[in-house]
Design a protein around this nucleic acid. Structure first.
Lengths: 209, 209
DNA sequence: AAAAAATTTAACCAAATGGTTAAAAAATAG
DNA sequence: CTATTTTTTAACCATTTGGTTAAATTTTTT
């Protein structure tokens, strides 16, 4: 394989990403991927033998955006407050750059949990490191130290992640119904979320006020 | 049409709901709906002429679970705190009974926003009443009265709804990764959410502490 | 320039799918 | 009982789709 092969392979990969992420596995047609990539179906199969193989490659990459290394912020030596602030801000920033990822991942995870689990298992990080376990422990420490009020660590973790992901996964609802299709206000709303989420969460759990 | 017609029509409707909600529009096969309903394809088309018509009927009903009348709690004469508590508790209860609805709605909304918007428009309530506008006004009043801290009403509304919906839409993640497939702990977690969400939110926005 | 690899073209295939049709059988209504 | 409606059966159809094949052309490597 030459260097330019990566050019074509990458071209196909990006086209596949565009189509799969927008339309899901069932809604995606191989021909459309080829069309978007500006090549033909034969070449598509020449690089990725089956739809499944291509999809799985896309899924893995998409998942790395969905559960980004941002979670490693937890293992840094920042203060708890800073960790929350940086985690949420960075997470929202990542999602602002990949706004279609959440609904894609959530849907495919739901559609074919077994295959998805397999793909996630093949990724390094996330599942292996037990990042959430560490996060739980960190929260429990803060509670024990009296820095935050008592709360089940899992509830707090799901709140944090949910507050970041939800406005993206539910964009048509939030933009359409809450903001009556005013895209500008919806985008300003998302921008503010970068700091708003940490604010909201910390106000809820901090003890001194 | 006789009375028993409704029996068969309802049978088909329920089978369609089961399949569509689990597999989405693209992933659903008409034959599977017929199989689940215990009838044959011909009879299916005899009642609902096309896949689209059947789907749209299902979508409308599902959406009424996704955005339930619970939102009318807002217009009641309860105290603000009570409104939040009852809204979140009832919403989580509704979703516990229809756990697959969120991801179904979010995905179909994303897949075909125009058709979804049309269907939502044909429903009474929700879109017409500007429930969210009223909710915003209510929140702003509470801020002006000094009962809760300053916050953009839309941020608070999205937080509330997101905290309710997210654990259902992201079940495979929450159950699989956070709770390592311990279904029992995941279900206990959801049960606690009925009160936990209001707790979390009120702690964040209440002024006296 | 020769060999190897990449790309295109186009025809082709089998399976799946949404939908139709028509005739027979069963159930229901008048 | 007769007429109507509902339901089944089964064959059928056109289209779509993922995938293959083979030959020709272009590009890259050596």
């Amino acid at each position: 394989m030459s260097e330019e092969d990566k050019g074509t392979e990458e071209l196909i990969f990006e086209a596949a990403q565009t189509v799969f992420v927008q339309k899901g596995f069932d809604g995606t047609r191989m021909e459309e991927i080829a069309r978007v990539a500006g090549i033909n179906k034969s070449l598509l199969h020449y690089y990725y033998r089956t739809k499944e193989k291509l999809f799985n490659a896309i899924f893995k990459k998409a998942f790395s955006y969905f559960m980004p290394k941002v979670l490693s912020t937890i293992s840094s030596d920042l203060s708890f407050d800073e960790k929350i602030k940086i985690f949420t801000a960075t997470y929202v920033e990542v999602l602002l750059k990949n706004p279609h990822i959440p609904i894609f991942i959530l849907n495919e995870l739901n559609r074919n949990p077994d295959n998805a689990a397999q793909m996630i298992g093949e990724l390094t990080g996330i599942a292996q490191n037990d990042t959430f376990g560490k996060f739980s422990a960190l929260i429990q420490e803060e509670i024990d130290k009296g820095n935050i009020r008592s709360i089940e660590p899992e509830q707090l973790i799901v709140n944090l992640i949910g507050l970041c992901i939800f406005p993206f996964a539910a964009r048509p609802i939030v933009q359409g119904i809450v903001f009556k299709n005013d895209k500008k206000r919806y985008n300003e709303f998302l921008e503010k979320r970068k700091t708003e989420i940490a604010n909201f969460v910390l106000q809820s759990i901090k003890i001194e006020k």
